[in-house]
Design a protein around this nucleic acid. Structure first.
Lengths: 136, 136
DNA sequence: TATAATTCCTATCAATTTACTAGGATAATA
DNA sequence: TATTATCCTAGTAAATTGATAGGAATTATA
């Protein structure tokens, strides 16, 4: 299940991508427009900033803005920042790999093989989708 | 993230599919062979039986067995029984649909469109994979 | 028929995660 | 210096997960 954090995060950056210019948008504005709890959104935007997706400016006239052009922001990266691994099991994750305690041989594991296929197909979609695609 | 329930459930039916005949296999046997907690596995096999994937026999010589030929058991059904919806968000789920509270227009939602693609590709894999494929 | 072996079923529980809230610190602007 | 905004840490209620406990029901067999 996709977390609300990820869902809200995507909605927020789509909102930013739809802006005409790159002047900072306040959390409160996005919160209102997208019906997202202010404080929760605040923490989400913070992680997006800490992970290089957004920039921010403090004080009056401050807010959040995209650091790159929407067409250069791919959703695989956004998903990893917000949701964590794209794979459904850690043992097939490319960026968050962990071996299974209960698995003597990973390559012989039926679950592993199936989930590797699913990861590949999901990853292809996320990699080939940019923020620009989502905000049209 | 795939739950342990689903992971164990798949491992258990793959184990059953690998048996030479269809005589019932005891929970304890699968539990030992696949390193799965006995009581937890018991509850998993119970749900697989209640959902038409497995049959069971009580008493001495009893146990669980596949109701259909492995090549006729598709993983989409197994996933739905064990894990629930295949979609990452309820609003794109075919079998467990729920609309989003925060979404005025589902068709205009960027998250919806992206997650519908992911569901399609995952579903295709699960539908085209049978238990026989996994147990070879 | 008695006994042992097995699944069936309900209830419970600790740990973790999720979705959110609180409140002050910090920085920029006017 | 006052105001406006983000920054940051901490906390918390509810739900979910991954089990565990223990007896009831059923079946095979001696």
């Amino acid at each position: 299940m996709l977390s609300k954090k990820t869902k809200y995060g995507i909605k927020a950056i789509v909102y930013l991508a739809k802006q005409k210019d790159r002047t900072p948008v306040q959390i409160a504005t996005i919160s209102n427009e997208e019906s997202i709890s202010l404080k929760f959104l605040e923490s989400i935007l913070l992680t997006l900033r800490k992970n290089g997706v957004l920039g921010s400016k403090k004080g009056k006239g401050g807010g959040y803005y995209l650091l790159k052009d929407p067409k250069d922001i791919n959703m695989a990266n956004v998903m990893r920042v917000l949701e964590g691994p794209i794979a459904m099991v850690p043992c097939v994750s490319l960026n968050f790999y962990e071996r299974c305690d209960d698995c003597p041989d990973e390559n012989a594991c039926a679950v592993h093989g199936l989930m590797a296929q699913v990861r590949d197909s999901s990853l292809e979609i996320f990699r080939n989708t940019t923020l620009a695609d989502l905000s049209q």
